[in-house]
Design a protein around this nucleic acid. Sequence first.
DNA 1: TCACGGTCCAACG
DNA 2: CGTTGGACCGTGA
Length: 174
Amino acid sequence: MYHFKIFTLWGNILAVYGRRGILSLHFDHTGEEEVKVKAGGSIERIWPDLFTALQNYFKGKRSIDFSRFSVDMKEYPPFTARVLEHIRQIPYGRVCSYSAAARALGCSGGSRAVGRALGRNRLPVIIPCHRVVNQDGCPGGFSSGLEKKLGLLTLEGVKFNELGRINDEVFISR
DNA sequence: TCACGGTCCAACG
DNA sequence: CGTTGGACCGTGA
C-alpha cells in the first residue's frame, strides 16, 4: 500500500493507493508523512496525473473528469459498491436524487440505504457523492460536514434558488 | 433480530 | 411554505 500527499487550494489531501487502484482520500491532512512512491509499481505513472487533476479541480477548472482513475472497491459491501459505481457517472456540475439512484439500481424505496452507502465513500471528489441531493432540490446530508458538500457543489457552479433548492435542469434524473 | 442513517411522502396548519 | 410521523431499505452488531 502506498500513500502520497497532494497539495491543493483546499489544503493537503492524503491519497492512499493499493495494487488495484486508489483506496481513499483524506482531507485536511496536516501530518508530515513523506511522499512514498515505490519503484516498479504503476503508481508513479498515475499519481502525477491525479495530482494535477485534483489541483485543477480545486482551482475551479470546469468539467474535470476523474473517471479514468482506477479505484479499489473490494472492501465495500455489494450494494454499497454498486451505489458508488453508479453515482460515479453523474457528470461535473450536475446532480441526482437519492431516490433516483435507488430506483436505477432496482431498489426503489431504498433512498435511505443509498444515503447510508454514500456515507461510507472513502473517495470524495473522485467518487462524487456530493452530487447526490434530496429530491426536492435541498442539499441533503453529508457525513463529513454539510459545508463541504455545499462548497464542492458551489465550486462546480451549482446554484441554489431563493428557497435554497437546486433547479430542475441541474438534475440528470429525479 | 434490532437500531441506525447523507430519505421520502402525505397530511396537516 | 414549514413541520411531523411513519414507512422503506442495506449494514453491522
